[in-house]
Each structure stands twice: as C-alpha cells, then as structure tokens.
Write a protein that binds this DNA or RNA. Structure first.
Lengths: 231, 231
DNA sequence: CAGGGTCTTTACCAGTTGGTAGAGAGGCGG
DNA sequence: CCGCCTCTCTACCAACTGGTAAAGACCCTG
C-alpha cells in the first residue's frame, strides 16, 4: 500500500549501527525515495498548476495524466482519489507558505520591521509561484472541496500571528487595533493580487510586475498607519 | 425561435395608433413578457447562485433544473447552451453594476464626495447580492469562460471612470496619481470581500457585516490619501 | 375549428468523468 | 530461483455531462 491519502513524503530519520551498512541502506532508501518522488512529485506539480488555473472541477485526471505522458491509474495509485490529490496539493502549498512565514518569524527582525519582512516574504512567494495563489484562490472559495483542509492549515498560522501582534500591542510596540481584521485584510490583499489579472486587461494594462508591487506598497502603508507607533 | 444566446429581455418601446387597441396589445405583451420572464428569470437567478458558489464547471444543468422543478431542456430552450446561460448571467450582473455606477455618476455629488458615493454604492450592491460577487470572482479568473465577456462589460466602465478621474486631476480637484492602478486596487478590494469568507472562519470569526465595513473604510481611506487634495 | 407561436416535455445519445480489478514489469532479499 | 514489494500498465464500468430531435400542451388569432 501507499501512505495515507494526501500525505506528503517524509524524510526518515536514519540512525546508523555500522557506518558502511548504514550508508548502503541510506543510499538505497534515497534511491527509492527519488524514484518514488519522481513521478509523484511531477504529478503534484502538474496538479497544482491545473487546479490553480482551471480549478478543481475543471481539471480532469485523464487530461492531467495525458499531459504527463502517464496513465490516469498511476495518479490514482499515488493519491488514491482526485480528492486525495487535491488534499496533497493543498498540504504542499500550505506547507510552503508556513515555511516562508516561519523563516521570518525565527529571524532577527523585530516590531514593525518584522511585519514588513513578513509581508515582503509572502509577496515573494506569490511572485515566484503564481500558481500557488491561483490554488489558494480556488480552494478558499466557501464550500469548495479542500476549503476545510486549507482552514486547518491556516488556523494555527493565524492564531500564532494574532497572538504575536497582540503581544506587541500590549507591550506598546504597536498601536492598538483589531488584530483579526488586520490579518484578514492582509491575507485577502495578497490573494487579491491573483485575482487581478483579468481586471488588468480590462483596464488596458498588460499584466506585469508593477501592479503587484503597487499592491504591496499599499498593504504596507495600510499596516503601517494601523500599527506603527511612530505614525 | 428565441432571442440570441445570452441576450436579456428588452422592454419594447410601444407607440400607439389607437389607445384601446394599443392598451390591449400592450397588456398582452406584458402578460407574455411576465409569463416568459417567470421561468426564465427563475433560471437566471438559480444559475447566478450556482455559478457564484459552485463555479461554472461545478454547476450541472441537470442539478440546476432539478432544483427548479423543471426539465433541463427548459433551460436549454431559453439559453441555448450552458455557455449561453453563463453569458446571460454575466450580462445581468455587469448590468446591475453598471446601473449602480451610472446612478452615482449622474448624481449631484462632486469631486471627492463622488468617489466616496461610488464606493459606498458598489459596496451596497455587494452586500445586497453576495452571490454577484461570487460570480464576479469566478468569472474573473484568467482563462475562465465568460472572462472575455466580463472584460467587454468592464472596459467601457473602466475607461469612463479613468477619463473622469484624470480630468479631475488635471483640474486640480484631485491629487495626481496613477488612475489605472487606483481603479484596479479599488476593484480587487471589492472582489476581495467575496474571498474573505473562508479566511474569516480560519481566523475564528463568524462572517458578519463588520469586516465588510472595515474593508470599505480601508479602501476609502486609501483612496482619500491618494486623491483628496485636502490630504 | 384550424393554424401558428410559445413554452415545456419525453426520449435518446455520444463523450467524458472518477474509480475498480487485476495483470505485468522490475528490483530486492532470502 | 522464488516470493515480495513498488510501480505502472490494460481493460472495463456505471454515472453523469451537455446537447439534439421531436412531440405535446397551452393560448391567441384568423
């Protein structure tokens, strides 16, 4: 059998008895993992791209498989069901975002600088992986399959950020404001960037980097005016 | 036959030769229009709701028909094809929005007050018809069917707003800024409101009116700081 | 009453959907 | 060499998809 539906491959922590034997074992394991990951990871990538652009319902497993030069059953072997595939994709994206946030939160920046670093980091992810935003957008539609799963990932993230912000406020390093609403505004601004493409064309602008940067500046200035005690 | 796919019923302008005859004719026409509109309008409403929540691909004509207590072919009779139905829905929504904007633009407000009135009006539509935002969101996904059609509706609206804003700027009644980017920001903020529901739950808030109001205040203050010459 | 228009229906269809069953390929350890 | 595990394949399916063809119901007009 395979690991449970939607699970992502985990690096097994190896503890060696004899060095040579351990190395050989490790090599074999790595090979296996690589071989396993190769197809699986490719499927995951393609699925992310398709879910993020065509949506969940707009994605057919047959098309996905055809695009990969693989039979549909290969996909189902690795991810059990279409739903399982979506779950895996959501998990991966949420993981990427959480990792990016963690990186900043364990960094050296403090107070307002940390907020700014956080925003910049998230926007960087958004720019580097536009499909990720597409997926986020797709899956954050109320009632969408995977919405619950996304929520499960977001909840601790949100809670953590909120606790931190409120602590900063209590310590007087940030101006008092509604932390929840602040977070929501920030989040939907980021997702909004993904939404803009069509509107951009309607306004006669070919989609470039500029509006994204504009949005980031906007968000930062909003946050600053809400939070920065220096005004 | 029916009117062309996606067309919305138009009120025929009646010119009477004899009063009584004209009245009778008009009555008959009205009855016909009512009878026609009844099913058709119901279908349109249900379709808007379904497209806006489940998405285009996630909506099946059979389900839609079943929900209305009607056979699927009735839908196809009125709207020719699923795509035609989407077009009609998009047209109606775009019409509602344009009408709301026109109402303000032909009103008495001037300068900054007009901007504020515009924002408030659009938010009012958004609050009164949440499904409309859902549809907008669905259809403004790049590559989505109906995206082109939405663009066709938005383009003149955007152009008109832009011309007006730039004229205001030239006259010194608004601070100079990038009108296009401003419009995009405003638009995606409004659509962002629709996106927020799930995020709200993730943050532990039951969706209420409050965040929407918050977003409106945010947008207004952003626009004010960009545009209002009084600072 | 005949005839035509509007609307809704039944009957039917070819193509696609996600998913199951099971066989075969290839490498591994015993 | 054999059995086992991992992975990919072929073959098949019931359910549903959007859509066509055509008949019947209703109402009005001539």
């Amino acid at each position: 059998m395979n690991e449970e539906a939607g699970g992502s491959s985990t690096q097994p922590g190896s503890e060696a008895a004899t060095e040579r034997v351990a190395d050989r074992v490790q090599d074999r394991v790595n090979e296996r993992l690589e071989a396993r990951s190769n197809t699986k990871a490719q499927i995951l990538d393609a699925a992310l791209a398709s879910f993020g652009t065509a949506g969940y319902d707009g994605t057919s497993l047959d098309d996905l498989a055809r695009g990969l030069g693989v039979r549909k059953q290969t996909i189902l072997y690795h991810f059990v069901s279409k739903r399982g595939l979506l779950n895996a994709v959501v998990d991966r994206c949420a993981g990427d975002l959480t990792a990016a946030m963690d990186e900043v939160l364990s960094g050296a920046d403090r107070d307002w600088e940390r907020v700014e670093a956080l925003v910049r980091r998230v926007f960087r992810v958004a720019l580097e992986q536009p499909v990720l935003l597409g997926l986020l957008r797709e899956v954050s539609r109320p009632g969408s399959p995977g919405a619950q799963r996304l929520r499960n990932h977001m909840e601790p993230m949100m809670a953590r950020a909120r606790v931190w912000i409120e602590a900063e406020m209590a310590a007087g390093r940030m101006r008092r404001a509604d932390a929840q609403l602040l977070l929501i505004s920030a989040y939907s601004t980021v997702v909004g960037v993904a939404t803009e493409t069509e509107v951009l064309r309607a306004a006669g602008i070919e989609p470039t980097l500029r509006p994204v940067v504009q949005r980031r500046r906007e968000l930062l200035s909003f946050l600053r005016s809400s939070l920065d005690p220096r005004g």
